[in-house]
Design a protein around this nucleic acid. Structure first.
Lengths: 340, 340
DNA sequence: ATGGAGTGGGACATAATTTGTCTATGGTGG
DNA sequence: CCACCATAGACAAATTATGTCCCACTCCAT
């Protein structure tokens, strides 16, 4: 059943939209009948003419009847509407969630894949695929793509294809090496991504914590300076979002920092920034590279994070996320986000 | 509660049409790949530009890939196509048509493939595939299979696989060579079938029209006698159904015979028998081999014929066909049959 | 090597459709 | 009777789909 709709969605991407549109028109007519076109249009937020075309169609299908007093459902229309109720809920559940989340989080777009990546590795792969699809959509011509580390980003890297690399791509790590295991470091991931897409990448390894003097001298290194420029002019950023404590542990943070995070109620992490539930920055890993405030300048910011366990972290980070952010998440996280 | 598809038929008939269009494009690409836009367009009956828009869409969806040699399905496209088959069948209402036809024609089973073999060679191949599938289903242990000639049977022969030949098969021509071009003669076809399935076959060449004396002496030839016995003990017969006049022409029938057929209103042909609309035999090519009355003794009789143009012929023949007949036809013929 | 027939992609004028907006006309209810 | 809301008609403007070229390129058979 779900698969049936999925198959159709592939060939008719706007199938659900149209279905939903016609459904909501039917529903409104059922509710307000007999009702005139104008009041219905303003109620539904469509212009009069658009609504009229749809209504003409529905009339053609014998689902609504029109007379001089207004529009009403026929008995056929009433029956169909009842059958639809249940279906719609199931079918467009995810689409509704996407829209709702987009509004709540005040970001550009939300993409939800079914399932829960906490429970199934497959779902994590699906997150990756969704991300790849999204990248393909927004990449145009030459592109510099800045990426961060993390297991989710690693999953993304694994599903990239040369297809995506047909455009001219250059992958760079978004920030200096933040001490995770090599497998999930930004450097490693950007290199895998470039390999998978047959494109180029730059490495960018700088020590995690630097004093100001060292920072100043590092920045003058032409090599580093160049990469920094690349990063700041990126047209796309891919990043994960992590649970604060988990991330801190994974980075082997010092006890005093752990303490600081706990007392300040850190729940989320992204780019080496730690956020509390209000979205305030409570700690920051000092390193060279993309800074949070740089994000606003970047046209496409794609955040990928899924799993019920990450809902809090996502919520926290999204309070500071730029409005141009696209969130790719899963059903588990989405439901949790909508609950809270 | 109606099924999802029924609801969609009601609420989205326009989209379903598009679905069907895109499906048929995918199917044609799958069949003809790699194929160019122009030849595909003329094949499908669309203008170049329309096809192009659709193909652009399919490419966008990652279902077809385009390179300088032509268009092909991606693996995703291939998968989707397979998944679609069932959906489309339901959409067109093929299952319903199959049942209805089975009852109307009073035969054992009807199998319908989508499309119209008058318009597309592909559909003829699909007929063949459906036949192969059906054969596989009804063959058990040792089998003698009697086959007739015709372009449809040739199409069947072409799609047989060694898979089917895992059972012990012996192909024989059902009747003496009825003078068509060698390509479509029963002898040729049974030989191709045996080759394709890695099994055995017997040739059976006797002149078309024989006098009684010659018949008697021929029948005593041990070689011919043996083959005749094989034919009569066949466990399966595969045969085509032809348009009467077309067949007569193809056989270079004498003018007086043509005249006879026309005046008696012959419309269908099978096994060298010509039928009028009432199913009465109006002429018979005199030759040795399987006779119409022998069919009743044969457990599995599979008739394969498709295309709008053959509807009349099918209808005519089916009035005389044994009840054990399985008809494999296409949407074009089926619709026409149901209309009349 | 070479010409021809195939390929995809670009371009563009034109046709067709969708859309926004306004008007005419006619019932309905107070 | 009049104000109000209803549908249907109309139509220009905007948008999209369509038919038709042409071009450069790549095979393949000669």
């Amino acid at each position: 059943m779900q698969s049936l709709i999925d198959i159709q969605k592939r060939l008719l991407p706007d199938l659900l939209q149209v279905l939903h549109k016609r459904y909501s028109i039917l529903r409104h007519i059922g509710f307000m009948q007999p009702v005139g076109r104008r009041s219905l249009a303003s109620n539904l937020g469509y212009t009069e003419r658009v609504l009229r075309s749809e209504v003409d169609f529905l009339k053609e299908q014998n689902l609504v009847s029109i007379n001089n007093i207004g529009m009403s459902l026929t008995s056929e229309g009433k029956n169909l509407l009842e059958d639809l109720e249940g279906l719609i809920r199931e079918l467009i559940g995810i689409d509704v969630m996407e829209l709702e989340l987009k509004h709540r989080l005040k970001i550009r777009k939300v993409i939800i894949v079914p399932g829960n990546s906490d429970e199934s590795l497959m779902v994590k792969e699906d997150l990756g695929k969704a991300c790849a699809f999204c990248m393909k959509k927004y990449l145009t011509g030459k592109n510099i793509i800045a990426v961060t580390g993390g297991s989710t980003m690693a999953a993304v890297a694994n599903v990239l294809t040369p297809e995506i690399g047909k455009k001219e791509l250059l992958f760079v790590p978004a920030r200096g090496g933040i001490g995770e295991d090599v497998q999930n470091q930004a450097n490693t991931i950007s290199s895998i991504m470039s390999k998978k897409t047959n494109s180029k990448h730059r490495v960018f390894y700088v020590p995690d914590q630097v004093s100001n003097e060292i920072y100043q001298s590092l920045i003058k290194e032409p090599e580093i300076h160049e990469v920094l420029n690349l990063i700041k002019s990126a047209s796309m950023v891919l990043h994960g979002i992590g649970d604060a404590i988990t991330m801190a542990e994974r980075r082997n943070s010092k006890p005093e920092i752990m303490q600081k995070l706990v007392t300040n109620g850190a729940v989320g992490e992204a780019f080496g920034y730690y956020f509390n539930e209000k979205g305030e920055i409570v700690h920051k890993v000092l390193t060279i590279g993309l800074q949070l405030e740089d994000l606003a300048q970047i046209p496409n910011v794609i955040a990928v994070a899924g799993g019920t366990s990450k809902a809090k972290a996502i919520k926290a980070y999204m309070k500071k996320a730029p409005a141009s952010t696209i969130l790719i998440t899963d059903e588990g996280a989405a439901r949790m986000l909508l609950k809270g």
